[in-house]
Structures are given as structure tokens and as C-alpha cells.
């Protein structure tokens, strides 16, 4: 009996990250489509944030946090993130990136799109791009996690996704380095994709997507070639920080 019963009255969609059945509406925000325990283990970034890097802040007097005020303000690109890179978020990113559970791009991307809408509501984006992987790494992993996220976001925000950047050098994994090494290692690692016309490009308002923000050096390096040809507005968004 159970069989036809469950065909007639299917269970509601389970939590996106574990398979716990929950009650949710199909068009609810991602946060409401996550089960109770997962919610508990995600540290959402809410409230006041650093105006530059999107780090959660306690006091509201300073617009920028301590790290950001050290960096030259000419290379200023605003960044926002969805959650802190701790607990469940760390686990989920690992499953997504290293285990290769590509399905997870959907909730993560949608969640990022929601956050993007929340913070960057007034920004007139015209296209989305992502942090590229080196060819060898891409071949080894089989997919680019930032690209998948960007594609989901593009679908959600109705924006085209383009590969504007190319990674020129193969760098060893960022996650195994100290802060200082990270900041240096990536110098001039990215170049512009030559398929795109630079005068056309300079008129665009670009949203740059990545999965994790730690020191922000990867994103800053990605922005460099874009700002060199005169792209005025580049905003970045990451899932975790």
C-alpha cells in the first residue's frame, strides 16, 4: 500500500544537505529548505559587515575591518559572502569540491544569488564570471566549482555567464599555505581571455564568483586584469569566508 500512497502523496523535498525530510515550500528561500540541524551548524553572515570584504563586524563605526584597512584602497573590490567557513559549511564545500558532488552547486548557487540580491540590489550587473582553474587542475578534478556556482547564479539572476579570465600559471593549492605566501603566490597568475573585445568589456558591470574567500588574494588578482582594461565596476561574491 505504501507504494501507491507515496506516489499519490509524495513526501516533501528533503533538506538540501542531508536527506532529512522537512516541510518547506518549493519557492521558499534556501535557508527555509534546510533542516533544523543543518541550520544550526551553518554560521550565516547577518547584520553589519565590513563594507569591503563582507566580514561580519561588531562595531558599526568603521566601514572597513582591520585587514581591509591595511590594503591599498585603489584595489578596492567589494565582496560579500553567505556563511562563515566553519562547521557545516566547511564540510559541504569539501564534499562539493573534493568529493565531486556537483549536485550541491544548486543550493549553494541559489543561496548566493539570494545574498547577491540582498546586498547588491542597486548594482546593475550585466554579466557574471568566475575564478578559473588551471587546465591541468580542471582536467584532474573534472569540473570547476566556481563555474558551476556561477552558472546556477546566472540562471537565477538571469545574467549571462562568461569566462573572462584564464589562469596562466599552475599554482599549488592555496589551502595549504600561510597568509603571507598566499598573498604573494598568485601575482599575475590570471590574464584576460582574448576572445572578448576590451572596449566592450570596459563598459560592463561584472560579478565575480568563487567558492571560498580567505585572504581575498585570489579575487584581488582576478580583478587586476579586469581593472587594467578599464572595467570600472567589479563586485565579488563567495559562498564561505
Amino acid at each position: 500500500m505504501r507504494r501507491w500512497w507515496s506516489t499519490l502523496f509524495p513526501l516533501s523535498k528533503p533538506c538540501w544537505f542531508c536527506s532529512t525530510p522537512i516541510r518547506s515550500l518549493p519557492f521558499a528561500c534556501i535557508w527555509k529548505q534546510i533542516c533544523f540541524t543543518c541550520q544550526e551548524h551553518f554560521m550565516r553572515i547577518n547584520g553589519s559587515v565590513c563594507q569591503k570584504c563582507g566580514r561580519p563586524m561588531v562595531e558599526e563605526e568603521n566601514p572597513a575591518c582591520l585587514d581591509c584597512s591595511q590594503i591599498d584602497s585603489s584595489t578596492f573590490t567589494p565582496n560579500r559572502s553567505v556563511v562563515l567557513y566553519q562547521g557545516q559549511a566547511k564540510k559541504i564545500i569539501q564534499i562539493f569540491k573534493y568529493r565531486g558532488q556537483e549536485r550541491l552547486a544548486v543550493p549553494l548557487g541559489r543561496w548566493m544569488a539570494e545574498v547577491c540580491f540582498q546586498y547588491y540590489r542597486s548594482v546593475p550587473f550585466s554579466l557574471i564570471t568566475y575564478v578559473p582553474l588551471h587546465e591541468n587542475r580542471l582536467k584532474q578534478r573534472g569540473f570547476n566549482q566556481a563555474e558551476l556556482l556561477a552558472q546556477v547564479m546566472g540562471r537565477q539572476l538571469r545574467l549571462p555567464v562568461q569566462k573572462l579570465l584564464i589562469r596562466r600559471r599552475e599554482t599549488s593549492s592555496q589551502s595549504q599555505r600561510s597568509r603571507k605566501e598566499r598573498l604573494q603566490a598568485l601575482q599575475h597568475a590570471f590574464i584576460l581571455n582574448e576572445e572578448f573585445d576590451s572596449t566592450w568589456l570596459s563598459r560592463q558591470c561584472v560579478l565575480l564568483v568563487d567558492d571560498v574567500y580567505t585572504t581575498g588574494s585570489t579575487l584581488r588578482e582576478c580583478v587586476k586584469p579586469l581593472s587594467e582594461i578599464g572595467v570600472k565596476q567589479v563586485y565579488t561574491i563567495t559562498f564561505a569566508r
Binding site: 568529493r99 565531486g100 558532488q101 556537483e102 549536485r103 580542471l138 582536467k139 584532474q140 573534472g142 569540473f143
Partner: peptide
């Protein structure tokens, strides 16, 4: 079914046994 950068074609992956390697 997903795009696969390893072989440059469309590949199918299994989500049931992903915990033991893709």
C-alpha cells in the same frame, strides 16, 4: 549527466557511491 573536463565530453556520474570515490 554533467559536463566533464577530464575527457571533454558529457559524462554521467553516480551519486550513490560517491562516498567511495567518484
Amino acid at each position: 549527466m554533467t559536463d566533464c573536463a577530464t575527457c571533454g565530453k558529457q559524462c554521467s556520474m553516480c551519486e550513490q557511491c560517491i562516498w567511495l570515490g567518484r
